[in-house]
Design a protein around this nucleic acid. Structure first.
Lengths: 152, 152
DNA sequence: CTGACTGCAAAAGGTTTGCAAAAAG
DNA sequence: CTTTTTGCAAACCTTTTGCAGTCAG
């Protein structure tokens, strides 16, 4: 598997960084690749992925790289559970997360379902939702059928 | 201000605890009252509120009380930002949060806006949203008008 | 060269846990 | 009297920060 050409945002990732005055570094490229490889990843998970290619990279570098990559619009994150945020690449189709509180499973679905709600909130409240950030908690089909209860 | 009769859930709060085998303690009552007084509160903030009435209460007690109160259905929490969760009492009208990433302000609105979306997700994906848990990120009217950018 | 970036280690938040003493039922 | 609950202190986990050395431009 070619570690370079993973997503379409990779095409101009360096230009994007450059444009905003940031430098191109191997670490930043590795983090971006890691985000695109694991389509969802916590900082910890991204570190593991990055370290498969470059063992010496430090966790704080992951955090700082993600901050920069997010600032230039190459990645986003959302808070799915109680724990760590999940980062994903911006070139994926915008999606939202359905996190099951009973089994912990997380499903990604298209963000299209939010369209009319987003429009309504924009109109009524003047509030502009960051759609890529959205995640819903609840119970998935399987857990409802099995009568599994429980939060978290 | 009467510290006892704040919300309607206070009516049978002790019965609720009792029913599930938990004991009635001043700390638990104080925490429940604090949640109803500050309609939104992080554990830290709830501690401060509780300590206005009983200085000796410990933060870990707040956490443990919230866990129990949540288990018996007297309070819920939602994760608004990056930081601490926010607890609110269940007897309030179910509401969701609109958190502005630019100014940090959080607005509560009725959860009614989610009705049709919730129904659709239930039908299409079999996923049952925990509505009280929902919060949206984005930009509020003020910040949009002032062209204020920025995440977090 | 010079400033931005990295690794490391320490600090900072937020939450959890073990334990002995205190309180509830 | 028995069992739960509390307060305290320490442990834990994730994220942030200060700093000196390194690297990109």
């Amino acid at each position: 598997m070619d570690p370079i050409a993973v997503g379409m945002s990779m095409a101009d990732w360096d230009r994007r960084l450059h444009a905003q005055g940031y430098r191109i570094t191997p670490q930043r490229q590795l983090v971006l690749q890691a985000v695109e490889t694991l389509r969802h990843g916590s900082p910890e998970e991204l570190l593991a992925e990055v370290q498969r290619h470059a063992a010496g990279v430090n966790l704080s570098t992951i955090y700082r790289a993600l901050e920069v990559l997010e600032k230039v619009g190459l990645v986003t994150h959302s808070h799915i559970g109680h724990g760590a945020p999940t980062y994903h690449s911006v070139d994926d189709e915008t999606h939202i997360h359905l996190a099951c509180d009973a089994c912990g499973n997380v499903e990604s679905i298209s963000a299209d379902v939010l369209e009319s709600l987003a429009r309504a909130l924009r109109a009524d409240k003047g509030f502009d939702i960051d759609v890529s950030h959205v995640s819903f908690h609840g119970r998935c089909r399987k857990c409802i059928e099995q009568g599994r209860a429980g939060k978290h």
